[in-house]
Amino acid sequence: MKILIVNTSDIQGGAARAAYRLHRALLNEGINSHMLVQSKVSDDYTVTGPFGKIPFDTRDLAAGIDWVLDTPDYAFLCANARQKVLDCFDSHHVANQRIFFTKKSFRKPAEDNKTEFATFR
């Protein structure tokens, strides 16, 4: 699956940061995501601004948009996309992921492969 997120900015403003977090989450899940923005502030190579080179053929983008809009399964595609977002970005799911990665970042290497957490004084 290839995703293109089109937004005014990549990280300036609340909506831009939300779109950027969605973009990074998709990449972290192994999904081919790219952002196309009017105003690029970050140095993220997966974000293309007005002075960057678009790393794909724009005719492919146009064909993809036409296919989505003209497909007889449009309602089915919408329902699946909505369900995927609900499943992956539900507040409980996101909170559990943050807890998991926070705990993971505080682990210290275990000599015998047991899970241990670092203690701080």
Rank of each mutant, 00 (worst) to 15 (best):
G64Y: 05
L26G: 08
L26S: 11
D60G: 13
Q83H: 08
V94C: 07
T58M: 04
G14C: 08
A79C: 05
N96V: 01
V47Y: 03
S42M: 11
D70F: 06
L69H: 12
N96T: 01
K108Q: 14
D66E: 14
Y74N: 10
S42G: 14
I54L: 14
L61A: 01
A118L: 10
T119G: 01
S33V: 04
Y20Q: 05
N113M: 04
F106T: 06
T46A: 07
S33Y: 01
H93A: 09
Y20S: 05
S42L: 13
D57R: 15
A110S: 15
S42W: 09
A25L: 11
G64T: 03
D66Q: 13
I11K: 12
N113F: 03
R98Y: 07
A15F: 07
V37N: 09
L61C: 07
D112T: 08
D112V: 06
A62G: 03
D66S: 14
A62S: 09
N7I: 07
F89D: 05
S9F: 15
D57K: 15
C78R: 03
D60P: 01
R17H: 05
I5G: 02
R21E: 12
T48D: 07
F117E: 04
N113K: 10
G30C: 12
A18Y: 07
A16C: 13
M35A: 01
